[in-house]
Design a protein around this nucleic acid. Structure first.
Lengths: 319, 319
DNA sequence: GTGAAAGCGCTAACAG
DNA sequence: CTGTTAGCGCTTTCAC
């Protein structure tokens, strides 16, 4: 175990001088600095990060809570966080939850144990009441939590869905369905609210059986299309909150010779490359930026203003 | 700062007794155990992970090195690692490299600093010579590195490509191209070797201009298809090492009214849901298992046998 | 400029 | 069963 003490001895200085050299502190005579660096070289010394963490009470690492790792959505947000974290010398610790509340709580426990300096919740499973005792300025939400003291960055899903509905209405649709990840969680609730409000504004009544949920991936999209096909009264258009799901629908429609958009129009969200490839009209959702902003918020200590990002439609052939 | 000492005082016992209770060690009188737990409760005590890490010389966390986070391939492998790690009480630390050698070396530096207990390389940028000094039994490769001392788990890409070629040959193709992620790296080299060997076995000569690389995502696939279209002499079939890329090709073909498989046959790899959705013949590549096995290898200390996983074809309509 | 020494908070060997 | 004590390795105040 070659530690700071052994190099101090070899260099003929005190441990504090070694520490100063190692951390680029000023006020060290060039001569001693050299001796220290030589000793470091000679003994092949490597700093022990855990000792530093303990001593400083910081780890320069941040935890990211997410349900799944194999969905593009979370890949993108992670990419955003990772890039920004790297720029600031931080590392990422991953807490995959599978939407399991206990796994999520475990992450907060790690935060309390100072294993990470902060936490970014890309998606949440526990109620805010449950989490409340653990939330401080080192926790960032990717949703519009109400407490103004909480740091948050989110997409304006309400407006996004409203615009999607309005667009479909402008194209003559009056029978519109919705396809969601889930029905709970702030982001989903905002989408649903947007859907109801804009439907009402257009004079439509929302049909509950036209709201599909648990839609995450391609296969889910294919299943929804099959379900749609079986319906007696079908919506003429579907708003789908994920390109993966839309892609599954389009692919399945192709197989079943269902015409998009003639038989069924689709407005999607994400604007991932696949929507362009499959000619699906999609709202760009800057999730990568959500990641970037989330990390910035974590660092920010002056005025944690909520960051609100907006969606933007890319018109293609699915409507 | 409520620490082990303060709860020892409040409970009227020694710090070691507290430590024993906290770590479920045997031989603690029930009465003292209660007192300790009461004190813990009362003072709202939470263990400091960094102190534990320092004291034990372990962090129970493992680093994962990967180039990108927003590709399904790495999402899947991560998912595999994460699940297995969780089962064993380990955490994941992410080292995203963008294929930057220095970022990769930084991860090894962290290993030396004991910030993580081990490292899994899902993809590698530096030469093995450069990494050699840092490789021990706590490093796992996801490729067939030659050194028998290294822990490794990998897909038999050589055989996979050979079978893909043989399948195409059996379908009457003699003009076969290849579409790769990159040309360097063990996995890619194995694929290329398989391609050359099986082409030779079939009596074909390989045309260099029919080998495309830098193909990672949908857009790359679309570009390749456009390039293919422009060629004077076109291959009649393409082996594509990623479903994402194949999907891009199929989508672009649809737009250009190029018929798959009549104008161009495609054999893909991954067997992700998208290949099923788009009716693409694809070899299942068990990357998720690569992640699972990688973590198991990390834990394994007796006989680190290399783990070799194989691909399996799912015949669909793209050939 | 530099060193001594007091932490940071926990673990574990050892003695009883 | 339980307490004492010596680490784990680094940072940082304070005094010279």
């Amino acid at each position: 175990m070659t530690n700071i003490r052994s190099i101090a001895k070899l260099a003929g200085v005190s441990v504090s001088t070694v520490s100063r050299v190692l951390n680029d502190h000023p006020y060290v005579k060039e001569e001693k600095r050299r001796k220290v660096l030589d000793a470091v070289e000679q003994l092949n010394y490597i700093k022990n990060a855990n000792a530093v963490h303990l001593s400083k009470g910081k780890t320069y690492s941040i935890g990211v809570i997410l349900p799944y790792l194999n969905l593009p959505y979370f890949g993108e947000i992670l990419q955003g966080i990772a890039g920004e974290a790297l720029n600031h010398g931080y590392h990422l610790q991953l807490f995959q939850t599978d939407y399991d509340r206990r796994a999520e709580l475990d992450a907060f426990h790690r935060l309390q144990m100072k294993e990470v300096d902060g936490l970014i919740l890309t998606s949440r499973s526990n109620s805010l009441d449950v989490l409340a005792p653990f939330i401080g300025s080192n926790v960032v939400f990717c949703e519009n939590v109400y407490d103004p003291a909480h740091k948050k960055v989110f997409i304006d899903h309400y407006k996004g869905i409203r615009r999607a509905v309005e667009y479909l209405v402008s194209k003559g649709h009056s029978q519109i369905g919705l396809c969601l990840h889930r029905t709970f969680g702030t982001n989903s609730e905002e989408r649903i609210r947007g859907f109801y409000d804009s439907s009402e504004a257009a004079g439509h009544t929302v049909r509950d059986e036209w709201i599909f949920n648990d839609c995450y991936d391609l296969q889910n999209g294919r299943d929804v299309l099959s379900a749609w096909e079986q319906m007696d009264e079908k919506p003429s258009a579907l708003i789908v909150t994920s390109d993966q799901v839309s892609a599954g629908m389009v692919a399945e429609a192709e197989k079943k010779s269902i015409r998009i958009p003639d038989d069924l129009a689709i407005v999607s969200f994400d604007n991932h490359p696949i929507s362009d490839a499959l000619n699906i009209t999609s709202f760009e959702v800057p999730i990568r930026n959500v990641g970037v902003e989330a990390f910035k918020l974590f660092l920010e200590n002056e005025h944690p203003e909520p960051v609100i990002l907006t969606t933007k439609m890319f018109e293609r052939g699915s409507v």
